[in-house]
């Protein structure tokens, strides 16, 4: 007993430096952001911060702009993560079936994911350019359009095009996770089902998909949280326009904090974002996580 306690103590001592560093860079900013959200604070330290209690939060929750932005962010998140999951599953299946050149496919899949988001955004901004973009060039040469389209000039279209750029960037992530999970699945169950007369779709929907649940959960949680906080790709492609049509909640936080200098309000917004993502993560875990599958 005393020996194990001493071992524990020594162990604790060893991880202490790492813990201090991690708490310093994660917990401290969170706490100070939370603290800041109760002040009417400016980005400059030269002006006095005034304590205003929950006013930042109340103002935000009573602001129509905030709720419209949340709706827009949820739209972005649902559509992009939904598409990424569908495409990711499809690609994972494809690689899993080992077609000709599957190794090459698996490696080349990483490229979009490895491109930094800023570069990805810049690339798509050029692709979507109405006068010299590749998208118009391609569609025109294929005869699908008879004159160039000004892509990023309507709020709805612009949002969907930003989503497309995000999907291109993030599908590989989901595909790789699911493909790795597929590789671990036992084949006996499916073989038995095939012997019993189950068709390919039944084997996929009733056997393979349920067994993939944990992997899907991991991919979904990570991608949803990321999508909800999307910023850089929007900053580069549309700067939140046209008419705020692509302004998501992180972009609004950025505007409030850095462009308008309302740091207190920005801190409150950051906290609300964390709250929303936490709620989403809890929902996913509730619905998808089954303790008995832990062994998988």
């Amino acid at each position: 007993m005393s020996l194990s306690r001493r071992e524990n103590l020594i162990g604790l001592l060893f991880i202490l430096p790492a813990m201090i560093v991690i708490l310093g860079v994660t917990l401290q900013p969170v706490v100070s952001t939370f603290y800041l959200s109760f002040f009417d604070a400016s980005l400059s330290k030269l002006t006095e911060n005034v304590f205003i209690g929950f006013e930042n939060y109340l103002n935000l929750l009573g602001d129509k702009v905030f709720w419209v932005t949340i709706q827009r962010t949820i739209y972005f998140t649902l559509v992009s993560v939904g598409l990424e999951l569908l495409l990711g599953l499809g690609i994972a299946q494809l690689i899993h079936s080992r077609p000709f050149g599957w190794r090459f496919l698996r490696i080349s899949l990483i490229i979009p994911w490895a491109v930094p988001t800023i570069v990805n955004g810049t690339m798509w901004r050029w692709i979507y350019n109405a006068d010299y973009g590749a998208l118009n060039g391609l569609l025109y040469q294929l005869g699908l359009i008879d004159h160039y389209v000004a892509w990023l000039t309507q709020p709805r279209t612009a949002m969907n095009l930003v989503i497309l750029a995000d999907v291109w960037h993030s599908v590989p992530f989901i595909a790789l996770i699911l493909q790795a999970a597929l590789a671990t699945l036992p084949v006996e169950l499916e073989e038995a089902a095939a012997v019993d007369g189950a068709n390919a779709w039944q084997r996929f929907a009733l056997i393979r998909l349920p067994m993939l649940r944990s992997a899907v959960l991991v991919a979904l949680v990570i991608r949803t949280v990321e999508a909800f906080r999307v910023f850089d790709i929007i900053y580069v492609i549309t700067n939140g326009g046209p008419a705020f049509g692509t302004t998501t909640i992180s972009f609004l936080t950025y505007l409030e904090t850095f462009s308008f200098g309302h740091v207190g309000r920005g801190a409150a917004l950051s906290f609300l974002i964390s709250l929303f993502t936490l709620v989403m993560a809890i929902i996913y875990i509730r619905f998808l996580y089954r303790p008995e599958e832990r062994a998988l």
């Binding site: 900013p29 952001t33 980005l43 800023i118 955004g121 810049t122 910023f231 850089d232 900053y235 580069v236 992180s250 936080t253 950025y254 904090t257 850095f258 740091v263 920005g266 917004l269 950051s270």
Partner: peptide
């Protein structure tokens, strides 16, 4: 294009 610091990090 320069990415500004994310809002959470000051």
């Amino acid at each position: 294009t320069e990415a500004p610091a994310p809002a959470e990090t000051q």
